[in-house]
Structures are given as structure tokens and as C-alpha cells.
């Protein structure tokens, strides 16, 4: 039963993902990619339990490594996306012209 329930989530999430992303205009495709890099840093949530649990040494070391790797994506991804999106400007906004 558990598996069926998980597969339901898979189906719905995949469909939702396709519907949401289809509407993103070409102009924003690069920020979309770096932004989704940040979101895929969600692995961090899974890594926390491995790094902080009372398991054997190998698990703790690997968990810590996973936390570090996922943190690169979360911090780096959101930051660089914000930096990029801050550059997208509308026409004739005062102060934009150099």
C-alpha cells in the first residue's frame, strides 16, 4: 500500500511539474535552470538525518558530505538566481540608462 501511495505522489508531482514549467518564457530559462538546481538541493533534508543520526562512522561521514554538497546547490543556486533575476528590467525605468 505504501508503494502505491508513493507512486501516486510521483504521478501527480510529475504532472504538476510539466504544467508549471511549460508556462515559463524562454527569456527566463537560465534562471529557471539555476533555480531548479537550488530546489534539487532538497536532498539536504534527507542528508540531515544521515549526518546527525547515531549511525556508524561511515554513515555520518557520508551524511556530512551529502549535507555539504546539497548546501552548495541550495545556497549557490538561490543566490545566483536572485543575482540574475535582479538584472531583468522593464523598458524605460528611470535610472536604468547609463
Amino acid at each position: 500500500m505504501e508503494i502505491i501511495y508513493l507512486l501516486f505522489i510521483v504521478l501527480l508531482a510529475a504532472y504538476l511539474g510539466f504544467e508549471l514549467i511549460r508556462k515559463v518564457p524562454a527569456t527566463l530559462h537560465t534562471p529557471l535552470m539555476s533555480g531548479s538546481n537550488a530546489i534539487s538541493g532538497i536532498t539536504l533534508v534527507g542528508a540531515l538525518a544521515a549526518a546527525g543520526g547515531d549511525d556508524n562512522l561511515l554513515t555520518t561521514i557520508l551524511g556530512t558530505a551529502a549535507v555539504a554538497l546539497a548546501s552548495i546547490n541550495v545556497v549557490g543556486g538561490y543566490w545566483v538566481t536572485d543575482r540574475m533575476l535582479g538584472m531583468f528590467k522593464k523598458k524605460d525605468k528611470p535610472g536604468v540608462r547609463k
Binding site: I9, A13, L16, G17, S36, T43
Partner: peptide, 13 residues
């Protein structure tokens, strides 16, 4: 579950 949902959003994108 949160890994499944968000991972798939990225996968679809």
C-alpha cells in the same frame, strides 16, 4: 515525500 515531489518538479523542468 518532500524529496519525491520537489525532485520531480526539477526533473520535469
Amino acid at each position: 515525500t518532500i524529496l519525491i515531489v520537489t525532485g520531480l518538479l526539477v526533473g520535469a523542468s
